[in-house]
Amino acid sequence: MGQDPTSSIIQLIVQLYAFMIVLRFLLQVAKADYYNPISQAVVKLTAVPLAPLQKAIPRIANIDITPLILAFIIHAAGWLLILTLQGHGVGTNLPTIAIISGVTVLSSILDIYFWAVLGSVIISWVAPGSYHPGPQLITQLTEPVFNLARKVVPSLGGLDLSPILIFIIIQILNSQLKSLTAMAL
């Protein structure tokens, strides 16, 4: 975005809140424990802006997609605010803002899974079967992805290689998203 402090602050606030909203979506898709204290905090922090969208937009295959739509809107609004504060014309930049906002939401999903898988691997070494809400939530978030990867790459003598496959897929998808962003600019 920009190098001035105002743009950096706006960018930080937008990214943090959009991160919470995307995390809410991923926790819902992974069917993570709703009563986990961390899940409850995420739900409470995102409930107010999501309520009108949830009333207006129906669920698709029993999945609430309104968090993704709200994250897209928040990113687009952040870009529009920064461009307006910098004195740039907004009208001609709308398609570019839409593409970059969509790519940013998808990139956030990949980033969350990258760090969650890394955290899950570390937790499996340090504190397997922990009863702390953090590790439990990370495990619940990553287990569906691990199960998909284990269907492709079976374990070798007790060594689970599924995180490696997930990391490779995340890196490939991230590189494609970066090239899409570069084309939009």
Rank of each mutant, 00 (worst) to 15 (best):
I100L: 11
G87K: 03
A77E: 08
I65R: 02
P67G: 01
A77D: 13
Q86G: 11
L118K: 03
A76M: 13
A61C: 12
F72N: 03
L137V: 06
L118T: 02
A116Y: 00
V121G: 03
P135A: 05
N93T: 10
N93Q: 13
V103I: 14
L94A: 14
H132I: 03
I123D: 03
L83W: 14
L110W: 06
W79Y: 15
I138E: 02
A56D: 09
L80A: 15
R59G: 08
F114A: 08
H132P: 01
L137P: 00
A56S: 10
G119E: 07
I57F: 13
I65E: 07
I122M: 11
S107F: 00
I122S: 07
G134K: 04
I97G: 01
G91A: 14
W125D: 11
Q86C: 09
P128T: 02
G87I: 05
G119V: 05
S130T: 04
L118P: 00
I109N: 02
I82S: 01
I112W: 04
L106C: 12
P135F: 03
I60H: 14
H132C: 06
G129E: 05
I97W: 10
D64N: 13
I99N: 05
R59Q: 10
I109D: 00
A98Q: 08
P133R: 04
L85E: 13
P128L: 02
I122G: 15
N62K: 12
I63K: 07
N62P: 12
A61E: 14
L80R: 08
L81A: 10
S120V: 00
Y113H: 01
I57D: 12
Y113K: 01
A127F: 12
G102A: 08
G119T: 11
I73R: 02
P135M: 07
L106V: 08
T66A: 03
V126N: 06
P133H: 10
S124I: 05
A77Q: 10
A56F: 15
G119P: 01
I99H: 05
I65L: 10
V121S: 07
I60V: 14
A116V: 06
W115Q: 04
Q86S: 07
S108Y: 15
P67Q: 00
L85V: 10
V90T: 11
S120C: 05
L68I: 04
N93Y: 10
T104E: 13
V117S: 00
L110A: 08
I74F: 13
L137E: 00
S108V: 13
I74G: 04
G89S: 15
I69W: 06
G134N: 01
L70S: 01
P67D: 06
A56L: 12
L80F: 15
S120Y: 03
I97T: 08
G134M: 06
